[in-house]
């Protein structure tokens, strides 16, 4: 009886400010408020010359952003290309390099993960190659391919391969022994065990590896393109040469948004393959 009346009281209290009671709504409110505060600070600060000389105001930057977003596809030569084209060029390079990396890393990861000996034997290579900065490959790529396009793809491939490879091998090596006992007691063939049990069981790990790899590919392409002549990275480099800061900020924002979208695609894919398991 007491508990019922107490919960009734709480419910009435909630309805008074029910908008602020919801956690999501509170988070949205805080987000909007902090964004507004940041923009005001930026606007005022730029007008009062608090920052570096020539720093654009928030309104000027947003105006540029609006212009670039509403005029994405124009082509006045390589140094005056719509941001939509540049974005598509970057995405194309990432798509090719990343797909190639995944097509190598997933099967290789499965092979390495299945055999404990291979897992131990090849681990040093992976651990050695994984921490190398993508840009360190750039001169090597340019020397080997003598072509900026191919070099860009090569750098994406070589730097986005490792998380997928490591995660796939880990997932395959750590498939619950119970699942394997089930397939053994049923007398399943090796082939059937791998394709029907081991790979589906490792899929959450494989997908989270693919997600990390995608993040890396998107990080790397912008850096690599500064030296390659087209794409979003080159757009920033070009605006730096023009010393036009608003456009650099516009490009940074667009790179962030696209990265966010790519990541959330993989996040939903992760949820799709988890089936109640935490990954």
């Amino acid at each position: 009886m007491t508990s019922r009346s107490r919960s009734g009281k709480r419910r009435r209290g909630e309805s008074v400010n029910s908008l602020l009671a919801n956690e999501t709504l509170r988070a949205i409110a805080l987000f909007v408020a902090s964004l507004a505060l940041f923009l005001i600070f930026w606007e005022v600060g730029a007008n009062m010359k608090w920052f570096a000389k020539g720093m654009p105001t928030a309104s000027k930057t947003l105006e540029e952003l609006w212009w670039w977003v509403t005029h994405p596809f124009f082509d006045n030569g390589p140094n005056d290309l719509g941001i939509g084209w540049n974005l598509l060029i970057s995405l194309r390079r990432v798509a090719i390099g990343y797909t190639a990396a995944s097509l190598i890393a997933v099967p290789l990861g499965v092979l390495i993960g299945i055999s404990p000996v291979a897992y131990k034997a090849f681990n040093p290579y992976v651990q050695l190659l994984k921490p190398i900065s993508p840009l360190a490959w750039l001169p090597l790529g340019l020397y080997i391919f003598r072509d900026s396009e191919q070099t860009g793809v090569f750098i994406i491939l070589i730097s986005s391969m490792w998380p997928t490879l490591v995660n796939t091998a880990f997932g395959v090596a750590n498939v619950s022994p119970e699942y394997l006992d089930v397939t053994k007691t049923l007398g399943a063939s090796r082939f059937r065990t791998i394709f029907k049990v081991i790979i589906p069981a490792a899929l959450p790990n494989i997908v989270s590896g693919l997600r990390i790899s995608m993040g890396i590919a998107w990080l790397v392409i912008v850096a690599a393109e500064m030296l390659l002549g087209t794409g979003l990275g080159y757009f920033i480099w070009n605006e730096w040469n023009n010393l036009y800061i608003p456009n650099i900020l516009v490009a940074i924002f667009i790179i962030g948004i696209v990265g966010l979208l790519l990541d959330s695609i993989f996040a939903s894919f992760e949820r799709f393959v988890s089936f109640g398991r935490k990954s």
Partner: peptide
């Protein structure tokens, strides 16, 4: 070795989650 003439029920069910 193992074989389908013996069916096994596991303590932790061992069902494939997918």
């Amino acid at each position: 070795g193992p074989g389908p003439d013996r069916g096994m029920v596991f303590q932790t069910y061992a069902l494939m989650p997918w």
